[in-house]
Design a protein around this nucleic acid. Structure first.
Lengths: 258, 258
DNA sequence: AAATAAAGGTTCAAATAATGAACCTCCGGA
DNA sequence: TCCGGAGGTTCATTATTTGAACCTTTATTT
């Protein structure tokens, strides 16, 4: 593990639920020596990736990240493009809508819109989504390069619930079904009592660069409701893909095989 | 310079104007060896801080940054809080409005709203603002800790235009005037033909954590127009400060001296 | 179609930077 | 006042980083 990896892995300790951490805690969680941890934090702080609260001396993520994220957004405006659609979907379905981006063959939740109701599915920004057991993952794989699919299904597939598909062949059938249908459906594959639908957002190369998903409690999800959400999410994903690339969705899809 | 610093400094090579760079170019600009540069980029890519375009092989900033930036935003919602005010100010003034955050005693532009007119001031997201020669910088220093002011004015002050104040005493007078007035005014101190007004956003500790500014061409900036923008920007900054900390602005201000 | 140039990528002995046990100080309970 | 735990620092030991030289691919020129 390189020093750089160690430094960045410290950033991964921060989350929505643990936004501020002390030196001792960071050292404990990372497993690095206190001196090492501090030196890494100082490097990160020098670039605004973390900042230290002057009174508590705890560390938190810094504004330098915001700066870089916005530079990325300026060229790759996934968030801005998707935001109105996410809002609209959330209002139309009254369910949780979330956007994930592909990073290194993983899916990363970058934006979540929760409906204003008590019984809803909660998804956290910053969460990684397993590819084989979430609607988002299946939608992603249905438009990923062949070798990415192989790699994702090549390793042991964790069973999150009793319904999680852990057989590569079964997952492949879901992927194929999603490709034909235009959206994926995951019935309690990641969490009991949660049914999600998702569709892939395609980049100019024709393969998936992210996914859009609607997650709802089982009790509100009839077959018909799932199908309706599926169509809505697919339509939104198509529109987002076209706005991002400036090209027709069918042209994008055809490019993947080339 | 630690390895971590080197890796992060690579990220700083990317900007709005150079969002994608090849390996050779990154090596050239950073001054690191090609092999070193590549190893660092691989580490960054492993965490989604950069990604490589499969076709051009060029590197660009990655979605992992977005993830961390959003985790920060969840705890420190400066952007979300400020966004509506920035929009409103931009519409009301028909001029460029920008938000900067304090990072390591520097000011970093994190959000810009440009008006829809031909002759306007352009500010780039990701730009660092000098403290002694911009309205934002003066506004920031007018609510910074004494030692920060000393450090900012202790080094040689660059003259960006013939009107830039390069005498610490003169800058201090501006800082004092801004503190009394509630906003700062910078008449062509950073760029000829540009007049800006700015106000500080205060954190719960009572000192400035960022600034809000309106930048306009000289030709549209009468004394009266500047004063009006100044009052507007000060009112917005006050409101943003109160929403962020949940405390009264005067209470916040008084806390600084404590 | 051969030649050239420039980019991306890889290797391994030499050089340099990272490591962590031990130490210090400060703070809030008991 | 003593204690435990926090943040922070030091420096000989240790492990990682470095870069010149090399290969491969791709685009451009002759």
């Amino acid at each position: 593990m390189s020093t750089v990896d160690k430094a960045i892995s410290l950033l991964d300790l921060f989350s929505i639920h643990a936004p501020e951490l002390g030196l001792a805690e960071i050292a404990r969680r990372s497993g690095f020596d206190k001196a090492t941890t501090r030196r890494l934090l100082l490097s990160l702080a020098r670039h605004g990736f973390v900042e230290q609260d002057p009174s508590t001396r705890h560390y938190r993520l810094g504004a330098g990240l915001t700066r870089l994220a916005r530079i990325r957004e300026a060229r790759f405006p996934i968030l801005q493009t998707a935001l109105p659609f996410i809002r609209e979907l959330s209002v139309a379905t009254s369910e949780t809508v979330h956007l994930a981006e592909a990073v290194n063959g993983s899916l990363l939740t970058v934006l979540v819109e929760h409906p204003a109701r008590a019984n809803r599915v909660n998804v956290d920004v910053g969460e990684y989504l397993p590819l084989h057991s979430t609607a988002s993952g299946i939608a992603y794989l249905s438009h990923a390069r062949e070798e990415e699919v192989k790699e994702a299904l090549g390793r042991p597939l964790a069973a999150y619930t009793s319904r999680t598909l852990t057989e590569p062949a079964a997952v492949l059938r879901e992927i194929e079904a999603a490709r034909v249908r235009g959206y994926s459906v995951m019935d309690q594959g990641y969490e009991d009592g949660v049914v999600s639908v998702a569709a892939a957002i395609l980049g100019s190369g024709g393969s998936a660069i992210g996914t859009l998903a609607v997650a709802a409690p089982l009790v509100r999800t009839s077959k018909a409701a799932a199908a309706e959400r599926g169509r809505a999410v697919a339509a939104a994903a198509r529109e987002i893909s076209e706005r991002l690339s400036g090209e027709d969705f069918n042209v994008l899809k055809s490019r993947a095989s080339a």
